[in-house]
Design a protein around this nucleic acid. Structure first.
Length: 493
RNA sequence: GGGCAGGUAACAAAGUGGCUAUGUGGCGGACUGCAGAUCCGCAUACGUGGGUUCAAAUCCCACCCUGCCCUCCA
């Protein structure tokens, strides 16, 4: 089975063949750590988390590098504003940002190299660029000469002349061509600096990615990714620098993630609609947010809104309900039944194949989700038709469901089905139940359910419904089934 | 001006030259004391105008509209 990836470089879907058999080396442009991580970051890093998970699912050994930009104009500006040391400031935000992504349930990359810790390597690369005639020094600054690199523009499919027409020249620029970009910037007063052959200064933004990716992955490496906004000029510049310096091809597959909008508008500082992850997690479950993203293809721009999350939450419920149902069924011991277990088991394999087909087609997560929902429908039907499904069969279905969902970052956390005693106490009182012997929330809930069952047995529907409604109000959904009441905890908004 | 994506039913979102995407919501049915869940069924689609074809929402052309990039941005 072959995996095909849409390569921005060729604007086509291409069959993925790794540089080194069985391995995937991927690099994704990381965060500039000057403020809290926002949902745009979440969108991108979640997309690549799914990419890496699917590669692992297929048996590849993945090495995933994501840089941290901790030397940058905005960081310096923010730090100076607060009278803080820029490097200390960025160190603090690095942790904050990574923790926000952790909280969202995005797995960490294997390595997070920092710009500030890779300066000597960057200097070496800049020296090589100058040696080979692609860079020039101008009063303590070093620039890359775009005209010297004939392939400039190959990623974004633009010609230098066209770009020049649209470019603007700042007064007092030391550049020879407006498209030239800084490899090294001369230090200004109050800025952090490093010694270099060109005097005190700091690296330009683009050079760090060329340096870190080639340092940790070697050239060429397999996948280079990032947000759509980085395609030009950042990624274009990365290619120019790395290929100019080494003479080797850089990254083989370029993947770009569609940028999200918020209520139909671009998310930007000027609009004041930046949603940061921590704020969002106070109101929404991490998995709901992940579901929302996975529902969209990584290349298309999702539109973020509260309604979209509400919809995502409802859809997710369907998956959780089946998971819990299967879990209970597979925990009890039943071998064999009257249902068509063989037919069901073989259909499971069919769903797996369809899932893989969808993911093999440029990580088509919405289609893969469709397959999962088909599988859910099929499984529910099987369970309806089968009186006592064998626990082994249920376990197999559960394993498949979890395995496929895990690739999409779903069902990765154990659902928190604990019961808080304090929540239950008012209800125990309301129904005048003895609280002395109750020592846990679970016992309290079970007592309430038992009382409700007694009421139902006496056809006291009023009381039974009242208990159900009260439990619903504190987030417990109660359903009556043939085998007794079934409950599950829901998020209370 | 140049580059890159899109316009699919109530909403979200895939896909395909002829065969149910899917989820949420709506309607009807089964089940239930009721509800819920679940199952079964139904409805509402492919921006506009041409063209190619036995057949196009899917290919081609034109047009309209939307978003993004060309300045820092995931």
């Amino acid at each position: 089975m072959t995996l095909r990836i849409y390569n921005t470089l060729t604007r086509k879907k291409e069959v993925f063949t790794p540089v080194e058999k069985g391995k995937v080396k991927m690099y994704v442009c990381g965060m500039t750590v000057y403020s809290d991580a926002h949902i745009g970051h979440a969108r991108t890093y979640l997309a690549f988390d799914v990419v890496r998970r699917y590669f692992e699912y297929k048996g590849f050994d993945v090495f995933y590098v994501q840089n941290i930009t901790d030397v940058d104009d905005k960081i310096i500006a923010s730090a100076n504003q607060r009278g803080e040391d820029p490097l200390e400031y960025s160190r603090r935000y690095t942790e904050r940002c990574l923790e926000a992504l952790d909280a969202l349930g995005i797995r960490r990359a294997d390595l997070y190299p920092k710009a500030s810790e890779t300066i000597p390597d960057m200097i070496k690369m800049i020296e090589r660029i100058i040696e080979k005639g692609y860079g020039y020094v101008a009063d303590g600054d070093v620039y890359f000469s775009v005209e010297r690199f004939p392939e400039y523009g190959k990623l974004s499919n633009q010609r230098i002349e066209e770009l020049e027409a649209g470019a603007r020249i700042e007064p007092g620029e030391k550049k020879r061509n407006p498209l030239d970009f800084a490899l090294w910037k001369k230090a200004k007063p109050g800025e952090p600096w490093w010694e270099s052959p060109w005097g005190k200064g700091r690296p330009g933004w683009h050079i760090e990615c060329s340096t870190m990716s080639s340092k940790y992955l070697g050239l060429p490496f397999d996948i280079h990714g990032g947000g759509m906004d980085l395609k030009f000029p950042h990624h274009e510049n990365e290619i120019a620098q790395a290929e100019a310096a080494t003479g080797k091809p850089f990254a083989r597959y370029w993947m770009h993630v569609g940028l999200l909008t918020v209520n139909g508008e671009k998310m930007s500082k000027s609009l004041g609609n930046i949603i940061n992850i921590k704020d969002l997690l106070e109101r929404w479950d991490a998995e709901v947010i992940r579901f929302f993203f996975v529902q969209n293809h990584y290349r298309s721009p999702p539109d973020f809104s509260e309604k979209a999350l509400q919809d995502a939450e409802k859809s997710l419920e369907r998956i959780h309900r089946l998971k819990e149902r299967l879990k209970k069924l597979s925990e009890r011991e039943k071998n064999g039944s009257r249902g068509d277990e063989k037919g069901f088991l073989s259909s499971i394999e069919g769903f797996k194949e369809k899932f893989e087909l969808a993911m093999d087609d440029d990580f088509n997560t919405p289609r893969a989700l469709g397959v999962i929902f088909d599988f859910i429908g099929k499984t529910n039907k099987f369970l309806e038709e089968t009186e006592e499904p064998a626990s082994e069969v249920c376990r197999r279905a559960l394993d498949t469901l979890v395995k496929l969902c895990n690739v999409l970052t779903l069902l990765q956390d154990e659902s928190k089905q604990e019961v808080d005693l304090n929540e239950m106490l008012p209800l125990l009182e309301k129904y005048e139940l003895e609280t002395l012997e109750i020592s846990s929330g679970m016992e309290a809930l079970e007592l309430l359910l038992k009382v409700r069952e007694d009421a139902r047995a006496k056809r006291d529907w009023k009381k039974a419904d009242a208990i159900r409604d009260d439990l619903q109000r504190i987030g417990f959904e109660v359903e009556d089934t043939e085998s007794g009441p079934r409950w599950r905890k829901k998020r209370v908004v």
